[in-house]
Design a protein around this nucleic acid. Structure first.
Length: 499
RNA sequence: GGUCCUAUCGUCUAGAGGCCUAGGACGUGGCCCUCUCAAGGCUGAAACCCGGGUUCGAAUCCCGGUAGGACCGCCA
């Protein structure tokens, strides 16, 4: 599904309703209005995958159009909002490098503003006092659901004009007619207003509700493009009506398709990690997640790898797809490995160090770190995996895998090890090249294949049969450790022979 | 139950009526390389949901079905 540019035959061939979508989005650019987008999470949990993508697309669109990206915390539900959540969300965005230009603004500090607007609607007759008790409403809703009727508020307080001495909420009076949502990714969608209920805009405790705050905020913060998950699509007609009642110009709407789990239901904890910070802990690079999220729902031809600058340059709302997508951890892993491989060794050393530490290994200040990371980067999908498979470098005493030791550290290899030690001990430039030369010489003298020598050495150095190439590994490990472990292996062989 | 959205390989997607024998990527099979494991290279299998229409021609436009999803709060 691709949206086209103006003035092409394809565009003119579109139905008039579809054409409106383009006009509304292009108008903003034509009038030179500064593009302003926002990410508006509610602080009732951590920053999750879906939220992160919404934030990303908002940022990308703003940057692409040289506009501003605003962060707003929607904490009108005082009971459910927490400080920890706010921090978690900010941390997540920070880690991903999603930097906002303005904010964070807190709705909880703007209650007066919402009340003011709500009462303006009361005065103009576009809102009314509703005296129904919440419990009563709840009972009616349940009854309606049970009988298969739409659970819509019946508007029974619409015509009560005298103020009563009872607690009341303010409801918006939904006018008759049809409301059309012009959405850049979904097209034009029309809603019959009779299916929209008179929503509460101000609760009986005088706190404002979500749909109302969003409109007041987006309008007063001059948000030009509302980019959010398509779970808000059904809220949009209500909000459009509110915009109109308040006398504000409409923003451009872009509803992003949902991210689904492997069973094609909405992504949730059941599908594994959904918290952005969990990916940090699992050893993912932030840009790998960014690249993955960008490509989930958006594409640019056949390209897969995008730097942040590429994304900003190439991102348009027109090339966002309309259908929901399944989160694919496998592909994320591939991207993560790609970016690990692309990270310079010294930088990687700093990134992977905490993962070694959490394995109980002291690595801080170890000068070998960059080289070690270099030997590991082509065989690690995550930083965590990298630390696990490289743990042997830092062990004080290596433990042999019993099977590997039995097969490769048998006493008859002792003379070979003695020779290896003798040859590498005098090497001063202890590197890949000189080591390979020394081994080649031994191989030639003894008429052996590398395979016969490499595996025993590998087991002696790492304890197992899987590791980076032996020469690069020995260089990274350092002469001292290599010699110690080779000698250790000889001791092991001798103790076996003595039995 | 009502409203709304969506539909191309297992997954993410390219596709703008003829460039389609449907392309790329992840994953997956095979081969090569090779000191193990990777990485890398080559190569294979794998999709237009179904039915009608419009058209000389439909993956593409329209309608209907089906399937999936979202929303229907004094939650956000």
């Amino acid at each position: 599904m691709r949206r086209t540019l103006l003035c092409t035959p394809q565009f003119r061939a579109l139905r008039p309703t579809k054409q409106m979508d383009f006009f509304s989005s292009l108008l903003k650019e034509a009038t030179n209005l500064t593009v302003r987008t926002r990410f508006a999470p509610s602080p009732t949990g951590y920053l999750h995958i879906g939220g992160a993508r919404t934030a990303l697309f908002n940022l990308l669109f703003a940057r692409h159009n040289k506009g501003k990206f605003v962060l707003r915390i929607e904490d009108t539900d005082v009971a459910r909002s927490t400080e920890e959540s706010i921090k978690a969300i900010l941390d997540g965005m920070e880690w991903l490098g999603l930097h906002w230009d303005e904010g964070p603004f807190f709705q909880s500090r703007r209650f007066d503003l919402y009340r003011e607007h709500a009462y303006k609607l009361l005065e103009s007759g576009e809102a009314y006092r509703c005296y129904c008790a919440p419990e009563e409403l709840e009972a009616r809703r349940e009854a309606a659901m049970k009988e298969g009727r739409p659970p819509k508020y019946d508007g029974r307080c619409r015509d009560i004009h005298e103020k009563q001495d009872k607690p009341f909420a303010l409801r918006f009076k939904v006018p008759p007619g049809t409301t059309v949502v012009r959405d850049v990714v979904k097209g034009a969608i029309s809603f019959d207003n009779s299916t929209i209920e008179d929503l509460v805009i101000l609760r009986s405790d005088a706190t404002p509700t979500y749909n109302f705050c969003v409109v007041v905020d987006d309008a007063t913060m001059d948000i030009t493009h509302v980019i959010r998950g398509d779970d808000h699509l059904n809220n949009t007609p209500k909000q459009i009506l509110l915009y109109k009642a308040l006398g504000h110009e409409l923003p451009v709407f872009a509803h992003l398709p949902m991210i689904l789990g492997s069973d094609k239901t909405r992504l949730s904890k059941r599908h594994g990690a959904t918290s952005v910070m969990a990916y940090k802990e699992m050893g993912y690079l932030p840009h790998a997640l960014i690249n993955y999220l960008a490509r989930l729902g958006w594409s640019h031809g056949d390209e897969e790898i995008f730097s942040m600058n590429d994304l900003i340059e190439k991102f348009t709302l027109e090339s966002v797809g309309a259908s929901s997508g399944v989160f694919n951890p496998e592909k994320l892993l591939w991207l993560n490995q790609h970016y690990i491989k692309a990270t310079p060794d010294d930088e990687l050393a700093g990134l992977v160090a905490p993962f070694f530490e959490s394995l109980g290994l002291k690595v801080s200040g170890d000068a070998r770190m960059a080289k070690i990371a270099g030997t590991l980067k082509e065989r690690s999908k995550t930083l965590k995996e990298m630390a696990e498979s490289g743990a042997f470098y830092f062990k004080d005493k290596i433990e042999y895998d019993p099977k590997a030791a039995e097969k490769f550290l048998s006493p008859d290899n002792d003379s070979l090890f003695a020779l290896i030690i003798e040859r590498i001990e005098p090497i001063n430039a202890f590197n890949h090249k000189s080591l390979e030369e020394a081994f080649n010489a031994i191989l030639a003298e003894k008429d052996l294949k590398l395979g016969k020598v490499a595996q025993p050495v590998r087991v002696a150095l790492t304890g197992g049969t899987v590791s980076p190439g032996i020469f690069e590994m020995m260089e990274a490990m350092g002469k001292e450790t290599v010699l110690a472990r080779l000698n250790g292996a000889r001791s092991h062989m001798k103790s076996l022979a003595a039995k």
